[in-house]
Design a protein around this nucleic acid. Structure first.
Lengths: 194, 194
DNA sequence: TGCTAAGTTGAGACAGTCTCAATATATTTC
DNA sequence: GAAATATATTGAGACTGTCTCAACTTAGCA
């Protein structure tokens, strides 16, 4: 069962709180350098802490990732809400897709985690991914109501497209990721003259 | 520098040839069970051979993968040639994309290898991937000449789309992979009325 | 039959994950 | 402020995996 992770607000002992923050800071650096599959040992080392401490704060890699991404994923949900205010439902969708792809590109290897976590209910990232998906759903609903997207497209389709494009970009280039995203979104439009 | 791998036809000693074949057979099973990131130790174990023997036949995981996929990738190139005979350039393209995606789905994790190998000239899989890409190029040229695909689409776009869709399918479902592929291909069509 | 090039072996150096009994420290209580 | 207690940290150790290479074995030839 996924926990929310040790909420950083919880009454923690002062040293525990300090190590928690140090670990997050180290993880941020190490993930940025080596991607989300980086060595957890190195993160502990760089945080100046024994590896057992890392495991006691973050039982799994995904739990660490969740804590590290919490704010960012919250921001993505907020973005979805804001985009609903745009006059154009079409621009809201492409804007959301771009924002979601930018998010999935923050660390190398992140797209895999985001994609598998939406399926895996036991993942520490599951809830956050679902919130993102829910945001996408609202954006998509409006786009479909406006007739700019085919009715049979699902939020999962958009989510998969965004992450698949981000993944492709990791292997090749940012430009390639953007091209794939464009093709995919374009292909979701209703057939003309229908 | 990528070698073609020990060509199985090379005058090898009988025991070497036998172990080579056993390793390939074991790799096929183990990759099928655990994906292309499976333990090489287990492959050697299952082939009834010391792990040093595996490394002497296949210096890298990619070299092993290349030997294992050689025939299949050759077949994909042949398929491209055959599809050029189809009356419909459109059907040839979708047919090729489906065949390429099926290929990328043979083992879990394969899409990553295919995608990174096309970029990495030192990969043992590079040449084979380039051959596949060349096949896609011919199919694409014809589709563009027939006006069923936009002129600015590249073979790399199609290659990336196919692998990205295959990757998404690994994380979710075969159906999702097919949907993504359809959206992408659809989005590569020329805008109507242009 | 024996020689030699070719091939195989598996221990060992290394890096990583994860656990848990022993230890240390912060906080609470009196 | 000292003792009691709850909370954290530590790092050795069990495990799995990658990859190398000196010592050994054997196939195939003369």
């Amino acid at each position: 069962m996924p926990t929310t992770g040790p909420a950083p607000q919880r009454k923690m002992r002062a040293d525990a709180r300090r190590n928690y923050e140090r670990l997050l800071a180290a993880a941020k650096d190490v993930f940025a350098e080596h991607g989300v599959e980086a060595s957890l040992e190195e993160i502990a080392r760089r945080a100046g802490v024994a590896n057992g401490t890392l495991y006691s704060h973050f039982p799994t890699r995904q739990a660490l990732l969740e804590a590290l991404l919490r704010d960012r994923m919250q921001a993505l949900s907020d973005t979805a809400r804001e985009l609903l205010d745009l006059p154009s439902a079409d621009e809201a969708l492409t804007g959301w897709a771009r924002a979601a792809m930018a998010h999935a590109t923050v660390y190398r290897g992140l797209a895999v985690s985001l994609m598998s976590s939406i399926q895996d209910e036991t993942s520490h990232l599951h809830a956050a991914c679902q919130a993102v998906l829910a945001g996408g759903q609202r954006i998509l609903d409006r786009a479909q109501a406006s007739g700019v997207v085919r009715g049979d497209v699902t939020a999962s389709d958009v989510y998969a497209l965004v992450n698949a494009a981000a993944w492709a970009g990791e292997q090749t280039s940012r430009a390639q990721a953007e091209r794939l995203l464009s093709f995919g979104l374009e292909g979701m439009r209703p057939p003309v003259g229908g």
